[in-house]
Design a protein around this nucleic acid. Structure first.
Lengths: 234, 234
DNA sequence: ACAAAAGTGTTGTTTTTACACCCATGC
DNA sequence: GCATGGGTGTAAAAACAACACTTTTGT
C-alpha cells in the first residue's frame, strides 16, 4: 500500500478568530505576521496542521501559543479553500472562533508575538482572505449567540447583569431595553445570584452572578431567544 | 519563493451526505466504494479536491458525477481530521450535506456507480468515520430545518401541505398536529397556492403550492420556528 | 436632597398550542 | 351516506415588547 497515488496534496492550516471582551468593548486579537510574504502585516493567528494533530488540536495549540490559554471555548466554522488564497502555496484554512475574557489573561498575551486587541469596529486590512474570515466569524457569533448562551465565555466567572448587557450590546452593536434584558436572562435559569455586589460602576451596585454549570451544560443546546428581533442582524 | 518548506502536506477530500425524499420517506444516498481498501463496502460519495478546485467545486463535481445534478442545495458543515481516519494515508474530509428530490432524478442516479437509497433508519455500517458524518449531518439538518425553510429543496416544484408535513415528520421522526402545521407553514408567506389539487392521496384532494421565490430568498435567513418544541430533538 | 444606575411591575399584543369541528369527495 | 383525509375556527396559555416606577447609595 503506497497511498492514493497521483492525488493532489496540499497544506492545511487553522486560523483563529479570537474574540475578547474587556468589560466595555468587544475586541479581536490580531498578530503581526512573522514570515514572508506580507511580513509585519496584521493577520489572524494561525498555523499549519502537524502530522499528529487533528484540526482541533492545531487550533488549540495555536491559541495556547499566543495566549497561554487552554480549555478555551472554540468552534470550527468554515473552510476557506480558494486555490490561490495563499499566494505562496495552496493552503486550506480551517477557521475557528474563540471566546476569551481579556482581563483574565492580560499578561500571557503579547509575549511571543506582536499581538494587539482591536475594536471590532476598527479592524485593519488583513492578509489574504482574513478580513472575509473575520466577517463570517462575526455573523456566526451573532447567529449562535442569539440562540445559545455562548457569550458567558467572554466574561469573568463573576459578572453583573449590566456587564452582560454591555457585552450583548457590543456583539449586536445596538442597545437593548435594560429591564427586559435582565428579566429575560434571569428567566433562563442559568444564573446564580451571589451575595456580593459590584459597587464600582454604580452607586446602587449590581449583584454579581455566576453560571449554574449544571443548567448551563444541560440547556446549552436549547433554543433560547436571547436577543429581541434577531432577524435584523443578518 | 519555494513555498512553506518543511510543512506537512496532506490530501483533502470532500464527502457528501446526500439526503433525498421520495414523497414518503427521507433517505440517504450511498455508494459502494470502488477502490481499495474497503472495496465494495458502503460509503458516502466523495472525492479528492483537485488543484484547480475549491472545496465547493469538488463537492459539486462529486455530486454531479453521481446524480447528474447541478445547482443542488448544499452546505458545508464540518471538517473531519483525525490523523488516522483514513488508514491508507492522511486525508482531511470536508463534509457537505445536499438535499434533492428523489423522484426528479430517478434515472441519472445509479448509472456510474453502484448507488442506492437507504432509509435513514436503516443506514448500514459505513467505511472509516462515515457513520459519524451521517449522524452529524442529521443533527445539522434538523437544526437548520427548525429555523430556515431548507426542506423545500427536497420536494418537487409543486407540492401539497400534507406532503410537506410528511417530510418534516420524516426529518424529525415524529408526528405534528396537521392543523397547526399547515397554518404555521402558510403563515410564513413562502407558499403560493396553485389552482390544482392532488387527488391521488385523498378523496378531498389537497391543493398544490409552490415556493414564492422572492419571499423565499428574502426570508431565508430569518428565524422561522417551523418546528414545535425543537429542543427535544437535540 | 439629588443624580445615577439597578431592577421590579404592569399591561397590551402577539405567538403558540391544543383540540373541535366542518368540508369535499370517492366509493 | 359514510369513511377518509384536508382544512378552518376557537380559546386558553405563554412569550414578548413597551414603558412607569421604585430602590439604593455616593456625593
Amino acid at each position: 500500500m503506497h497511498g492514493y497515488v497521483g492525488e493532489h496534496k496540499l497544506l492545511a492550516a487553522v486560523d483563529c478568530i479570537i474574540f475578547g471582551f474587556d468589560g466595555w468593548n468587544l475586541k479581536l486579537l490580531l498578530v503581526q505576521r512573522n514570515m514572508d510574504p506580507e511580513r509585519n502585516k496584521w493577520s489572524l493567528m494561525g498555523g499549519f496542521i502537524k502530522p499528529s494533530e487533528t484540526p482541533e488540536n492545531a487550533a488549540n495549540r495555536v491559541l495556547e501559543q499566543l495566549t497561554g490559554l487552554k480549555n478555551v471555548y472554540m468552534e470550527q466554522f468554515h473552510v476557506f479553500g480558494k486555490p490561490d488564497r495563499d499566494p505562496v502555496e495552496r493552503t486550506l484554512s480551517i477557521t475557528y472562533y474563540a471566546l476569551i475574557d481579556i482581563n483574565q489573561y492580560k499578561e500571557q498575551i503579547l509575549q511571543n508575538q506582536r499581538a494587539e486587541w482591536f475594536l471590532l469596529t476598527e479592524i485593519p486590512a488583513l492578509i489574504f482572505d482574513h478580513n472575509e474570515m473575520v466577517n463570517l466569524a462575526k455573523r456566526k457569533l451573532r447567529y449562535k449567540a442569539a440562540l445559545h448562551p455562548i457569550l458567558f465565555q467572554l466574561l469573568p466567572e463573576k459578572f453583573t447583569i449590566p456587564q452582560l448587557q454591555a457585552l450583548y450590546e457590543g456583539v449586536y452593536n445596538t442597545n437593548f431595553d435594560d429591564r427586559n434584558f435582565s428579566r429575560k436572562l434571569l428567566s433562563t435559569g442559568l444564573l446564580l445570584k451571589l451575595p456580593e455586589k459590584d459597587k464600582l460602576s454604580s452607586k446602587k451596585g449590581a449583584f454579581y452572578y455566576r453560571l449554574d454549570q449544571t443548567n448551563y451544560t444541560k440547556n446549552f443546546e436549547k433554543f433560547l431567544n436571547l436577543v429581541p428581533n434577531p432577524d435584523k442582524f443578518f
